[in-house]
Simulated scan of single mutants.
Amino acid sequence: MKEDIKHLSNDLLFNPSFVKPCTINKLSESNLEVIKPYIAPSFCYDNAITSARLVNAENIVYGAVRVKLNNEWHSIEHCWIRLNGIDYDPTYEVILKEHQKSQIDYFSLFSVETNDFDTLTKQIGHALGAVAGLDFHWFRKAPKFEQYFIN
């Protein structure tokens, strides 16, 4: 795990002091059916905020995954939800259900309360915040979140 955190720090400029390994669980079939029509490949930020609102998740979690593809590990910024204190990944659960699953390890960096999302997007200057998820670009530029990243 320490080696993965080192890669995330080097590859994505995450502050290793805030990176934490986490476990992702499978959504209930009822929640999966609710969100499935709204999940789009490569839009984890939008998928997370939409899913959080649809299933009343309390948090949107920002972090990364370490994915093993063709025997090589890759660091990818990623976003998922926290519902009743348990983490779920609506994007990969829907998308990978239809494809071969690669080895994926999850690491959280910080979370944002779903109820505070719209206010936060206005504070950090993302005009589409009410309809589109915030990617790391916006957080990297916001003074409130700068401690999570290496400059």
Rank of each mutant, 00 (worst) to 15 (best):
residue 1 M to A: 03
residue 1 M to N: 05
residue 3 E to Q: 10
residue 5 I to V: 09
residue 6 K to T: 00
residue 7 H to M: 11
residue 8 L to Y: 07
residue 9 S to P: 05
residue 10 N to P: 00
residue 10 N to S: 08
residue 11 D to V: 01
residue 12 L to A: 03
residue 13 L to G: 02
residue 15 N to I: 01
residue 17 S to C: 02
residue 19 V to N: 06
residue 19 V to H: 08
residue 19 V to A: 10
residue 22 C to D: 05
residue 23 T to A: 04
residue 24 I to S: 13
residue 24 I to N: 11
residue 25 N to Y: 13
residue 26 K to N: 12
residue 26 K to G: 02
residue 29 E to W: 08
residue 32 L to K: 13
residue 32 L to Q: 06
residue 34 V to C: 02
residue 36 K to G: 00
residue 37 P to C: 02
residue 38 Y to D: 01
residue 39 I to K: 09
residue 39 I to A: 04
residue 39 I to W: 09
residue 40 A to L: 07
residue 40 A to Q: 10
residue 41 P to I: 01
residue 42 S to C: 06
residue 42 S to E: 13
residue 43 F to G: 01
residue 45 Y to R: 03
residue 46 D to W: 04
residue 47 N to A: 09
residue 48 A to R: 06
residue 49 I to R: 15
residue 50 T to G: 00
residue 51 S to N: 05
residue 52 A to E: 02
residue 53 R to E: 04
residue 53 R to W: 04
residue 54 L to G: 03
residue 56 N to Y: 10
residue 57 A to R: 09
residue 57 A to M: 07
residue 58 E to T: 04
residue 58 E to N: 08
residue 59 N to F: 15
residue 61 V to W: 14
residue 61 V to G: 10
residue 61 V to L: 12
residue 63 G to H: 13
residue 63 G to C: 09
residue 65 V to C: 11
residue 67 V to D: 04
residue 69 L to Y: 13
residue 71 N to H: 15
residue 74 H to Q: 10
residue 75 S to T: 03
residue 76 I to Q: 14
residue 77 E to I: 00
residue 78 H to P: 12
residue 81 I to T: 08
residue 81 I to S: 15
residue 81 I to W: 15
residue 82 R to E: 15
residue 84 N to Q: 14
residue 85 G to W: 14
residue 87 D to N: 15
residue 87 D to M: 11
residue 87 D to Q: 11
residue 88 Y to W: 12
residue 90 P to C: 10
residue 92 Y to P: 00
residue 93 E to V: 02
residue 93 E to R: 14
residue 94 V to H: 07
residue 95 I to A: 06
residue 96 L to R: 15
residue 96 L to A: 08
residue 100 Q to E: 13
residue 100 Q to P: 11
residue 101 K to Q: 15
residue 101 K to T: 03
residue 102 S to R: 14
residue 103 Q to T: 12
residue 103 Q to R: 14
residue 103 Q to V: 11
residue 104 I to G: 06
residue 105 D to S: 08
residue 109 L to D: 07
residue 111 S to R: 10
residue 112 V to F: 09
residue 113 E to R: 12
residue 114 T to C: 03
residue 115 N to L: 05
residue 117 F to M: 04
residue 117 F to I: 02
residue 118 D to P: 02
residue 118 D to H: 06
residue 119 T to E: 11
residue 120 L to N: 05
residue 120 L to T: 02
residue 122 K to R: 11
residue 122 K to Y: 06
residue 123 Q to D: 11
residue 126 H to Y: 15
residue 127 A to S: 12
residue 128 L to H: 09
residue 128 L to M: 09
residue 130 A to L: 03
residue 131 V to F: 08
residue 133 G to T: 07
residue 134 L to D: 01
residue 134 L to M: 14
residue 135 D to P: 05
residue 136 F to A: 01
residue 136 F to G: 01
residue 137 H to N: 06
residue 139 F to L: 01
residue 140 R to A: 07
residue 141 K to L: 14
residue 142 A to V: 03
residue 142 A to I: 03
residue 142 A to E: 06
residue 143 P to R: 11
residue 147 Q to S: 07
residue 148 Y to E: 02
residue 151 N to S: 05
residue 151 N to V: 00
